[in-house]
Design a protein around this nucleic acid. Structure first.
Lengths: 149, 149
DNA sequence: TTTAATTAGTTAGCTTATCTAACCATTAGA
DNA sequence: TCTAATGGTTAGATAAGCTAACTAATTAAA
């Protein structure tokens, strides 16, 4: 098998939206605490990067600053995150996850992983190896060229 | 390497939203005619299934009927698709892509594929094989269990 | 065969997620 | 010290979803 980049691109363009929709629908469903995908990703990022600024969030999540501002705003309203002024630079904001935020993040994560695992139940071991390998390759391919104009 | 379904799920949950965002941002960018991802998917589906009904669209795209109705409405406003009454069943709607729709679909598709291909430029052949294999496995895993309650 | 149930779509009204443009603070620099 | 640049927020737009409530058409049933 040859597998050109073009071929991979075609597969990705067809399959990725499918999975994404599934993940989104699952997260919206009753099975899991109510977190949307961007909310989930934001909390996850802040959990791993306590004290991150809004710009950090925007950059890592891949959205514009105002979008991040609003997203975070809603999370704070729901007591999932906290926002403080950075004392060393009063323009900056220092974000952290609340106890409630961590609880909900964990539940949401677990629910979604369980759901996905079940979906993957019929895959063969070699399929699963391919998935892991593919995801790693993609991650590095897509994270590498982040700052190209 | 073992690669449990759980492990795959973790990778998917992390990487899929990344790629999705990339695809979305690319489609929104100037490089490509202005189609959003759901618009793109809808047109693509109708192109491959001329005469499809709204329900068909909703089912295949994975959205509720009212969402599909609105989505299609906008596409029609932009002269990308046409809607006709099905003569055999006047409740049904028969969708088709316009000439303009096909042109834009092709341009958008090409632009996005080119973009993704470039991103994948640094991958090894074995990575690319893994990607193709993974996508196929995922597609069948996710399409199979569509109608479970 | 008239009525009841089902099916296909639409409309209304809500939420979230994005964007760009315009703005205010704060900090850094000439 | 005035001016640049940086970090966020606000305002206002569009798109993507949803559910609930509705209309019109078809099918099934009494």
């Amino acid at each position: 098998m040859v597998a050109t980049t073009e071929e991979c691109a075609r597969e990705l363009l067809e399959v990725v939206p499918l999975i994404m929709r599934d993940i989104r629908n699952q997260m919206r469903s009753q099975r899991t605490p109510d977190l949307t995908v961007p909310q989930f990703r934001t909390i996850l990022f802040v959990d791993r990067n306590t004290g991150a600024s809004l710009s950090d969030v925007a950059e890592h999540i891949g959205i514009a600053l105002p979008s991040a501002s609003k997203l975070v705003d809603d999370l704070i309203k729901n007591d999932l995150m906290s926002r403080e002024e950075d004392p060393t630079d009063r323009r900056r904001v220092s974000l952290a996850i609340t106890h409630r935020g961590r609880t909900i993040l964990e539940a949401s994560r677990k629910g979604t992983l369980t759901y996905l695992s079940e979906k993957l139940g019929g895959t063969s071991p070699s399929d699963r190896e391919a998935i892991v390998k593919a995801m790693r390759a993609i991650r590095s391919a897509f994270q590498k060229q982040k700052n190209d104009t």
